[in-house]
C-alpha cells in the first residue's frame, strides 16, 4: 500500500498526504493523515466512506482546489499544487456535484468549454478542437444531445455532457464528485459502466466518489475506503470485502455489510429464524422478502442446529406455512408476508 517512490506511470499519487481545513484563527483540523495512494492509467477508482469522513476534502485536495495540510499530491512527476491553473487544466479535469446554470447554451457548446485551456485568447475552436469535442460527445454517448439546450436536458443527460466537457480537456486524470447523486438507478448503472469503459478505452485514470457502494463494488477497478477518522484503505473491491474492511467501515446501528453477498443488510425488528424450502427464482425472492421483514432465513433445512418454529414451502405460485402454526396456504407472496407480520402472542 505504501509507495514512497512511485514509478512514473502513476497518473496521480499522494505522498504522506494529510488533508483537512484551517478555520480562520484556529489550528488546522486534520481529517485524514498519512494517505499514500495512486491512480493508474486505465483504472476506475471509487472513493467510498460514510458521510463526514472527509471524502469531499480528499477530492478537493486531489483536484487542486484545496491545499494539503502536509505531504504532497503528484500529477505524473509534478507537484499538483504548484502547477499553474492553465497547465493543470490540461492534465486534470473535474465534474462537481454542484448544479450548473449556464443559461441558454447547447450541449455541444457546453462540452466545447472543455477546450478552454487549449484555445487562443478569443476562445475560437480550431478544427482539431472541434474534433476532440465531437469525440468526447461520442465517447459518452451524447451525440444525439448536441443541438439540445442544456436547460432541457435531464439530470443524467446533463451529467453525460459535463463528463464530455471534462474529457474534452484531454486530462490524464478525471475526478468526479458523486456523479451518480441525482440519477435514478438505471441511469446510475449506465453512468458507472460508461466511466469504467472510458477509463479502459481512453487509458485515463478516473476517480469518483460515491455513496453507491453496491455499484462501486461491481464496476470499480479499485476502492479507496475512507472510514471516519481514517486511515484510508486501498484495494480491489473483492479484497476489501473479504478482509472485512468494508464491514468495519460501514458498521453502524441497524445496517450491516454482508461480506458474503456484497450488499448491505437491513435489520428490522428481529423475528427469529424461519425455514424455507424452495428453489429457483421464486425461492430466491421469497428469501429476500422474508429477510426484509426481519427473519433469519434457513434455506432447505440448511443449518439443522438452528431450530425453526415455522417453515415456508414454496410451490408453483403458492406458499405453504407449517410448523408451530398453520398449516396455511397463500397464493400471493404479499398475503404470506401480511400473515407472518401479524403480531402473535
Amino acid at each position: 500500500m505504501n509507495t514512497p517512490t512511485p514509478p512514473t506511470n502513476f497518473s496521480l499519487s499522494t505522498h504522506n498526504l494529510a488533508i483537512g481545513y484551517t478555520p480562520s484563527r484556529r489550528p488546522a483540523t486534520v481529517v485524514a493523515d498519512q494517505i499514500n495512494v495512486a491512480l493508474r492509467p486505465g483504472e476506475l477508482v471509487a472513493l467510498i466512506g460514510p458521510n463526514g469522513a472527509g471524502k469531499s476534502t480528499l477530492m478537493r485536495t486531489l483536484a487542486g482546489m484545496q491545499a494539503p495540510l502536509r505531504g504532497q499530491v503528484c500529477l505524473g512527476k509534478d507537484d499538483l499544487h504548484r502547477l499553474p491553473a492553465d497547465v493543470l487544466a490540461k492534465r486534470l479535469a473535474v465534474v462537481l456535484t454542484e448544479r450548473i446554470d449556464v443559461g441558454n447554451l447547447s450541449a455541444y457548446a457546453l462540452a466545447a468549454l472543455g477546450r478552454h485551456p487549449y484555445t487562443d485568447w478569443r476562445g475560437k475552436l480550431t478544427p482539431h478542437d472541434e474534433e476532440v469535442v465531437q469525440w468526447a460527445m461520442t465517447a459518452v454517448g451524447a451525440t444525439a444531445l448536441a443541438h439540445r439546450s442544456v436547460n432541457e436536458l435531464s439530470d443524467g443527460e446533463r451529467q453525460k455532457v459535463m463528463i464530455a466537457r471534462a474529457l474534452a480537456q484531454e486530462p490524464q486524470v478525471l475526478i468526479l464528485d458523486e456523479p451518480t447523486a441525482f440519477l435514478d438507478l438505471p441511469r446510475r448503472v449506465e453512468l458507472m459502466r460508461l466511466l469504467g469503459t472510458l477509463a479502459y478505452t481512453t487509458q485515463r485514470a478516473i476517480l469518483l466518489s460515491t455513496h453507491d457502494l453496491d455499484l462501486a463494488l461491481r464496476v470499480a477497478d479499485r476502492l479507496w475506503l475512507l472510514p471516519s477518522g481514517g486511515p484510508l484503505m486501498d484495494g480491489i473491491p473483492e479484497e476489501l470485502a473479504f478482509n472485512g474492511a468494508l464491514a468495519e467501515t460501514f458498521q453502524s446501528e441497524g445496517v450491516e455489510f454482508d461480506s458474503m453477498a456484497g450488499t448491505f443488510k437491513l435489520h428490522r425488528q428481529p423475528c427469529g429464524p424461519i425455514g424455507l424450502e424452495g428453489e429457483g427464482l421464486l425461492g430466491q425472492w421469497t428469501a429476500r422478502a422474508l429477510e426484509r421483514i426481519g427473519f433469519e432465513v434457513v434455506r432447505n433445512g440448511g443449518d439443522l442446529e438452528i431450530p425453526v418454529p415455522v417453515t415456508v414451502e414454496v410451490g408453483a405460485a403458492q406458499w405453504r406455512v407449517k410448523g408451530q402454526v398453520g398449516p396455511h396456504e397463500f397464493t400471493t407472496l404479499a398475503d404470506l408476508l401480511t400473515y407472518l407480520r401479524q403480531p402473535r402472542a
Binding site: D86, V94, L96, L113, W121, G123
Partner: peptide
C-alpha cells in the same frame, strides 16, 4: 472582448472556471 473567453468559463461558476484554467 479580451475577457469574453473567461466569461464563458465563468458561466459554469468559479470552481469550474478555475478547473478550466482561469485565474
Amino acid at each position: 472582448n479580451v475577457i469574453a473567453k473567461s466569461l464563458n468559463a465563468l458561466l459554469l461558476g468559479e470552481t469550474y472556471a478555475h478547473s478550466l484554467g482561469v485565474n
